[in-house]
Design a protein around this nucleic acid. Structure first.
Lengths: 234, 234
DNA sequence: ATTCCACTCGCACACTGTACGAGGAAACCC
DNA sequence: GGGTTTCCTCGTACAGTGTGCGAGTGGAAT
């Protein structure tokens, strides 16, 4: 009553798509390819049109605007996440952990997704399926009422809160590769006034960056799951 | 050796700023005002110039490019976070919790910061000060070596992983206010095939959104801190 | 008086999302 | 057959973006 109607791609019915000319699926597929190749900023309606041998504005027949296109593409991401059906899993931590790792891997595989997650409404069928499984897993764990949502939110918040900086670093590095040494030196200079930070930096070798992130992730994940479990017995 | 030099605003020396005409501080202050008023997309060099009675390209004397400007305003955000010096705090959870709440409040106060956190290198003096205090707090808690970093990262990942969706929702709502009922109905229709999700939705009243978020945050924060504490005694 | 430096800024370029409306092509009805 | 309607494509245009370039200005130092 107070505002205008909520609108999303998932709200409206899609175009009938009778003729086999172009279709939403085709457009979304091309968009994902473009995004994988050139990142979120690399996706423009003109480029996407060109990739499909179409005029830029032709796409607007299938999609109301770019935001809607992104909503569609966003749901593809959720489709790539593998969450074992909680009913077939003995331990809820197994479901939750599998989801967390899968979500992180998907984000690293499609770095542009980091710019969408959390900012785009996740109402597509794939997103709902994942959310449903997660909900069932936490319910099966023993959470009740709102705490089911809280627990699920806490887990996903950790995953993408951790992964966004990773992705950002990767992307920046891919855009223009930086000299590791000069970077390290610059950071050390900036942190000169903070001996504790310098100490921390010296202890983390730059070589094992990939492995170090993996360790960081499993450490944090274990902590989050432990913390959730603690909330159960309380 | 393998790439080019790392460059950041914090790497280079700022302009001498002799004449009292314009200065970095003034520009950054105006940029923050503009960002608060119009959001991240609302900040353009032309608008910022106009606000300062200057041509758009005049700003490029003080700042190499827009990214550098954003690095500068980004550090302002860190400056607004209040972290009690860990040496004066009895319990590390107090420091960590205060930081978490403060970070969230700052993000809610400056919604545009959500688009910067995690994507922009946090090398400004304010960011370093906060990081240093956090490091000291976790060290004081008993963490050793890399786990100090892991613990701190886990905490901040949770905070901004949780807060980004909040901010995104607020911003979308501010941009064009939506009818709560139509939104709810749309979501219910989308989730029609998932009875567990419908059940969850019906249980959460829309009225107490603000309070519900607060509860969600304290729930998740407690879980994360518990989980970290568990890692200590292991 | 001349040179130099710190600074300002207009113009231009290539790019963005998308509103609009003119067209084509095929499918339907009489 | 002709006429009308529906689906679909796309050229053009508009208002905006970051920023490279080079010309210009005012004051201070020589």
């Amino acid at each position: 009553m107070t505002g205008k109607q909520f609108s999303s791609v998932w709200t409206r019915d899609p175009r009938p798509a009778k003729s086999p000319g172009r279709s939403r699926e085709e457009i979304v597929r091309a968009a994902v390819e473009l995004l994988d190749a050139e990142g979120l900023d690399g996706l423009s309606m003109r480029k996407l049109g060109a990739k499909l041998d179409a005029g830029a504005t032709s796409l607007y027949w299938y999609v109301a605007n770019k935001r809607e296109l992104l909503e569609l593409v966003y749901d593809e991401i959720w489709g790539e996440m593998t969450v074992p059906p909680p009913e077939e899993t003995k331990w809820w931590r197994q479901t939750a952990g599998a989801f967390a790792h899968s979500m992180r891997r998907v984000m690293l595989r499609h770095p542009w997704s980091a710019g969408l997650i959390g900012r785009t409404p996740a109402l597509g069928p794939n997103a709902l399926e994942v959310t449903s499984r997660l909900t069932r897993a936490f319910k099966g764990a023993g959470f009740r009422g709102l705490e089911i949502d809280y627990a699920a939110s806490t887990l996903t918040a950790f995953v993408f809160g951790t992964t966004i900086p990773e992705v950002a670093y990767n992307e920046a590095m891919a855009r223009d590769p930086l000299d590791e040494d000069s970077m390290r030196e610059a950071v050390e200079r900036a942190a000169a006034a903070h001996p504790d930070l310098l100490e921390r930096m010296r202890e983390s070798k730059p070589a094992d960056l990939r492995e170090s992130r993996e360790m960081m992730f499993t450490f944090g994940l274990a902590a989050v799951l432990d913390g959730l479990e603690a909330r159960l017995t309380a």
